[in-house]
């Protein structure tokens, strides 16, 4: 069947600055709105932490394993306190900046590195392209967790090593997607047109291929943020990620594990934070994908109706 709806695609769907249009589209998806609100809270938490707006984080023997929801206490203790009497809410906020920070830096490095390598492999092909793809295959051939464990065991667990190991193990996914997209865009007529005008490879990659590949890559990155967070939590849980006294949500879950029967909140709240954040990233990623795909726009529109 011929695509009857495409025959009627309107000439113009985005009027005004892109940000207004995005906000309007966001309003069409209540789940995405909820996700955005949660992420906003997380971002605010990171800011309060970095500006040292938080008060008390001292060890306090009085508050050891204080249960949550005791609203008679200072607000920092509303989510209870850990075995050393440190307020859990403050610890959660501090952990947020490590957890999210590691996830964002990791994803950005694999996004930039993977996109560049993938676009090069896709556009030029040949020996360079083959080499890049074979390295990908090798990385993908090992279970990610194993590679990460091995790497961190060899080089020692530190934040920078964690970021490097995670970035490298995630990179093949970006390379493959970027390469596949490039192979498709490379054959588009507008690339031929640029070549007829005398555009060289650098020009074509910069002006035509990268901007066309970018939306897909950003979507992939937003999905990956959640994955990397879970991964970091897992590694920290195993003792190869973040080392005390630094703190991340994964580490907090690991530390809380021993108290599961006596002080459930120690593992529960960081676990909840991981779950809500990953879910929010995934929901927003899904929304982002729809927004960037004109053939899916009606989903956003008809829901508003």
């Amino acid at each position: 069947m011929t695509d009857t709806s495409a025959e009627f695609l309107p000439a113009r769907e985005r009027r005004g600055p892109r940000i207004f249009w995005l906000l309007r589209a966001l309003a069409g998806d209540p789940m995405a709105v909820a996700a955005a609100i949660w992420l906003l809270i997380v971002v605010l938490a990171i800011f309060t932490d970095s500006l040292s707006l938080l008060g008390d984080n001292r060890i306090s023997l009085k508050a050891r394993n204080l249960p949550p929801f005791d609203f008679g206490q200072s607000w920092t203790l509303w989510l209870g306190a850990d075995a050393l009497g440190r307020p859990l809410l403050v610890r959660l906020i501090q952990a947020a900046s490590t957890t999210i920070g590691i996830a964002v830096v990791t994803v950005l490095s694999s996004l930039i590195g993977g996109t560049l390598l993938g676009v090069i492999a896709g556009y030029f092909g040949g020996i360079v392209g083959n080499l890049i793809m074979r390295i990908c295959d090798i990385i993908l051939g090992f279970p990610t967790l194993l590679v990460a464990l091995f790497g961190l065991y060899l080089f020692g667990p530190s934040v920078s090593n964690l970021v490097i190991v995670l970035a490298i193990t995630r990179m093949p996914a970006y390379i493959r997607v970027a390469r596949a997209e490039t192979l498709e865009v490379r054959e588009r007529l507008f690339v031929d047109a640029a070549r007829v005008f005398g555009g060289g490879p650098a020009w074509i990659l910069r002006t035509h291929i990268l901007p066309s590949v970018a939306p897909t890559m950003l979507t992939l990155a937003s999905v990956n943020l959640a994955m990397v967070m879970l991964f970091e939590s897992g590694l920290s849980y195993l003792g190869l990620g973040i080392q005390p006294p630094s703190v991340s949500w994964g580490l907090m879950v690991a530390q809380g594990q021993g108290y599961l029967s006596s002080a459930w909140w120690l593992g529960f709240f960081p676990g909840l934070a991981v779950m809500l954040t990953t879910m929010s990233f995934n929901l927003l990623a899904n929304w982002f994908r729809i927004v960037n795909d004109p053939s899916q726009h009606w989903r956003l529109v008809s829901r508003r109706r």
Partner: peptide, 28 residues
């Protein structure tokens, strides 16, 4: 120079018309 068959494929959808028209001048 060439005029391609498919007017939907031969113009980069992410570029504004003024940039599309001046692309050859940027290259030459």
């Amino acid at each position: 120079q060439v005029v391609f068959q498919d007017p939907y494929q031969s113009l980069n959808p992410r570029m504004r018309i003024d940039r599309l028209i001046s692309e050859p001048w940027a290259l030459h």
